[in-house]
């Protein structure tokens, strides 16, 4: 186990380095945007004096590297500065939004991941049958349609025509957990439809890939029934690729949901990011990007560790 801890520590270290590089990219990408930030924020009617005052207030008259170091040291402590538009602290603006995004992602993941893996096992068992083909076509259709389109279809049938679920996911404080689940059901369902296909197909492929192995033939020759061959003999050796795809999709659930949030007017980070970009609220943009990058890095780290832990050779060294 000592080896695994060391490995996790090393990956974590590398993750921090990656995050550092990303922070440089984010900060200087914003710097490179054309036009003066102060002018952009104040609009066309601003006078020379107000722009100069704004620049001084934002510290824009100082060199970029100095501002970067200040920003980074703040970010490390959770202080991303002050919003240019509302004047509110960025962390206070993002905090509740990020919690909402995590809630939606977790909601979708809790449905999508078990569903995808179970479906993947079933289609691997029934490979090349009608069920396999139908499941493939349906999931491929759902992954190929743009998510805003899927969202509107769901709104049309589950909300407008039958009034089963609310079309707008307006959340407020003090809602019961059941109410939260009910109100955000449609955006969660849209996300489930988008991510299930990928994970299901990878589960199927990873299992079928192993079916030619000698130990699978051995299991068959011992008289093990087909479902047990798949679940007991193939699946435990197929986790590594499945875990990687699950991690990528989880990252997508957090960082790629802007369209779904817009369609359902869901108060998540994605919508905040879109608003901030259109209003040139750069501290918010930078903070969102950094959070997204950290999510990606953490989930990929988790996938690496997960696939190592499922390998018996590493879990039980000689």
């Amino acid at each position: 186990m000592g080896d695994i801890l060391r490995l996790v520590a090393r990956r974590l270290g590398l993750g921090v380095v990656t995050l550092f590089v990303v922070s440089i990219l984010i900060f200087f990408a914003v710097e490179l945007l054309p036009g003066d930030i102060a002018e952009a924020v104040l609009g066309q009617s601003a006078t020379q004096e107000t722009v100069a005052a704004m620049r001084e207030q934002l510290g824009l008259d100082r060199p970029a590297p100095v501002r970067y170091v200040e920003w980074l040291s703040g970010a490390v402590q959770g202080d991303f500065g002050v919003s240019l538009v509302s004047g509110e602290r960025v962390s206070a603006a993002i905090g509740p939004r990020f919690r909402n995004t995590l809630f939606l992602a977790a909601y979708a993941a809790v449905i999508a991941v078990p569903l995808a893996i179970i479906l993947g096992i079933i289609v691997a068992l029934l490979r090349n049958t009608v069920f396999d083909r139908v499941a493939n076509v349906l999931t491929l259709t759902s992954i190929s349609s743009p998510e805003f389109f899927l969202g509107y279809i769901l709104i049309l049938y589950l909300s407008v025509k039958t009034s089963m679920f609310p079309a707008i996911a307006s959340l407020s404080h003090g809602m019961s957990f059941g109410d939260l689940l009910y109100r955000s059901f449609l955006p969660a369902l849209t996300l489930v439809l988008v991510v299930t296909a990928h994970m299901m197909r990878m589960t199927r492929a990873a299992i079928i890939n192993l079916l030619a192995s000698p130990y699978i033939e051995m299991a068959r020759l011992k008289g093990v029934p087909p479902w047990k061959v798949i679940v007991r003999h193939a699946l435990p050796n197929a986790w590594a690729p499945i875990i990687n795809v699950v991690a990528l999709n989880l990252a997508y659930l957090i960082t790629g949901v802007v369209l779904v949030e817009v369609v359902f007017v869901y108060p998540g980070v994605g919508q905040l990011l879109v608003d901030a970009v259109s209003k040139r609220d750069f501290p918010v943009v930078q903070a969102c990007c950094l959070i997204f990058a950290a999510t990606f890095i953490l989930l990929n780290l988790a996938a690496d560790v997960g696939s190592i832990l499922t390998n018996p050779r590493l879990r039980h060294p000689k």
Partner: peptide, 18 residues
């Protein structure tokens, strides 16, 4: 299979499930 007729494969290392 396994009960009345059994099979011993060439490579035991590959035929035992890891």
């Amino acid at each position: 299979r396994g009960s009345r007729i059994a099979y011993v494969a060439q490579s035991a290392a590959a035929s035992f499930n890891p």
